[in-house]
Design a protein around this nucleic acid. Structure first.
Length: 222
DNA sequence: GACCAGGCACATC
DNA sequence: GATGTGCATGGT
């Protein structure tokens, strides 16, 4: 590896600046957004969240009262609306039944315990769980997404076959255990990925282009 | 019209 | 463990 994790981060930060992901939103709104954004553009998620806000449903107990069919219609703009409604209900069951509807109480749990509990919810996978823990709870867990995988594999910094947990460990073992840093790093990777590292790479103008291996980006099948 | 987006569960081999 | 498929709206 020709650049450290910190150097890569700083290069991205110099280019794009702070991303302010989920800065002024409530933890609950962040949690809902984490589910709705699964394989979906953020723009669509915003419309769905607006629908909930207009009805004062951005509250765990209030949203828990809403029948799943009604919830589905409200979040329709986010896509996959029927399955996401079910997933939100599953998550709300955990929040309300185990933590009395208090996210504050929920985030008192240890990172390890809470991560297990979230992963046990049908519809919450590793990325959604880590997004909730990091962005809603401020807990130090690194979020890995498609762009993280793609950007790092194409530069030869990890293997294309690396699994979620391996990539997460790669970052967490090479960085200070700092939620702010994890937050910014992940957001910056999404930013550079969105601009330069989609299914077909656009390396011209990419701040990481100078770090590419000989012959350009690695390409198995993505 | 084709392609894509801040995944996940489930079926099958 | 590795692949393949369904889920769905809205932007480019």
């Amino acid at each position: 590896m020709s650049a450290t994790l910190e150097e890569i981060h700083n290069r991205l930060l110099d280019t794009y600046g702070h991303q302010h992901w989920w800065p002024g939103e409530s933890p609950f709104e962040v949690m809902v957004g984490a589910v709705l954004v699964q394989n979906t553009s953020w723009k669509n998620v915003e419309r769905a969240i607006e629908n909930l806000r207009e009805r004062d449903l951005l509250d765990p107990v209030a949203l828990h009262q809403v029948p799943v069919e009604e919830l589905a219609e409200l979040i329709r703009p986010a896509g996959y609306y029927r399955i996401k409604a079910r997933r939100l209900c599953n998550l709300l069951d955990l929040v309300v039944e185990r933590y009395g509807g208090s996210l504050e109480a929920m985030f008192q749990s240890s990172l390890e315990t809470l991560r297990e509990e979230l992963l046990a919810v049908n519809g919450i996978g590793p990325e959604t769980a880590d997004s909730i823990l990091l962005y809603a709870g401020g807990m130090p867990t690194f979020v890995v997404d498609t762009y993280t995988h793609r950007v790092f594999a194409r530069h030869g910094w990890i293997d294309f076959s690396a699994r979620y947990h391996e990539i997460k460990e790669h970052f967490e073992s090479g960085l200070e255990k700092d939620p702010q840093l994890y937050n910014e790093y992940h957001a910056l990777l999404v930013r550079v990925g969105h601009l330069h590292c989609r299914k077909t790479p656009k390396c011209a103008g990419c701040p990481l282009a100078g770090l590419l291996p000989e012959g350009g980006p690695r390409e198995p099948e993505f």
